[in-house]
């Protein structure tokens, strides 16, 4: 199982870059679903002796992050005519470049951090840098994209990054907490989806750029 981990982590990095470089919102959501599935498999793969807990958590992650949430996001934007991200603040090439910089930075920082765990139980070295890359790419999407749906995608990537970091601690953070975290993320995106749906109806497009009424005059 452990041999699987590194290829999966690399695939996670690729999905990050894909979201950064893609203009179609539906394709972004699909990439997010792929990332969610990878995360689910990963959480089963990192734990050495296969346990009920890790399998349950992995399955839950796949169901929530790869199936339910992407389906729900697609429902929220079904009514929109515009399916493309309008002019991001930073262009797609620029985002990809920044993503690459973020990746370099993450690996640099992760190398300087003290090792997580010790000896044989130490998780794969790539886990921490990939977690950081995912987190930074999520932030980047959140900041540079104007559509509310894409911002939700960015938030989920950010949350995925935190989740990846959490995988270094599987044996220390109890099952109950992991389930609570997963549930909270689920509800958060659920509520965001509903708000996106209303923004869509109210403004005829799901662009958060229209949300400029409230500011200091």
């Amino acid at each position: 199982m452990r041999a699987l981990i590194e290829p999966i982590l690399l695939a996670v990095v690729l999905t990050n870059f894909a979201v950064l470089g893609i203009s179609r919102v539906t394709a972004c959501v699909r990439m997010l679903a792929v990332q969610g599935a990878l995360l689910g498999v990963l959480s089963i793969a990192v734990e050495r002796p296969l346990s009920v807990h890790s399998v349950a958590l992995g399955t839950g992650t796949v169901i929530v992050k790869a199936l339910v949430l992407p389906w729900f996001l697609r429902w929220a934007m079904r009514e929109t005519s515009v399916r493309r991200e309008v002019e991001p603040v930073i262009g797609y090439m620029g985002s990809l470049l920044l993503g690459a910089v973020a990746a370099g930075l993450s690996f640099g920082v992760a190398n300087r951090l003290p090792a997580v765990g010790s000896g044989q139980d130490a998780p794969v070295g790539l886990l921490v840098p990939v977690a950081l890359v995912t987190l930074l790419c999520g932030l980047l999407v959140l900041i540079t994209r104007s559509k509310a749906v894409t911002q939700v995608v960015g938030y989920l990537m950010l949350e995925n990054g935190v989740y990846l970091f959490g995988l270094t601690l599987v044996e220390r953070i109890s099952f109950l907490v992991e389930v609570g975290v997963l549930l909270d993320v689920f509800v958060a995106v659920f509520i965001m989806g509903i708000v996106v749906f209303h923004i869509n109806r109210e403004f005829d497009s799901i662009s958060a750029e229209n949300l400029v009424e409230l500011r200091e005059s």
Binding site: L139, L142, M192, A208
Partner: peptide, 13 residues
């Protein structure tokens, strides 16, 4: 709607 969106995104992050 605008207020709740800002609140959700910022505090979720």
């Amino acid at each position: 709607l605008e207020a709740v969106w800002k609140y959700l995104v910022l505090s979720s992050v």
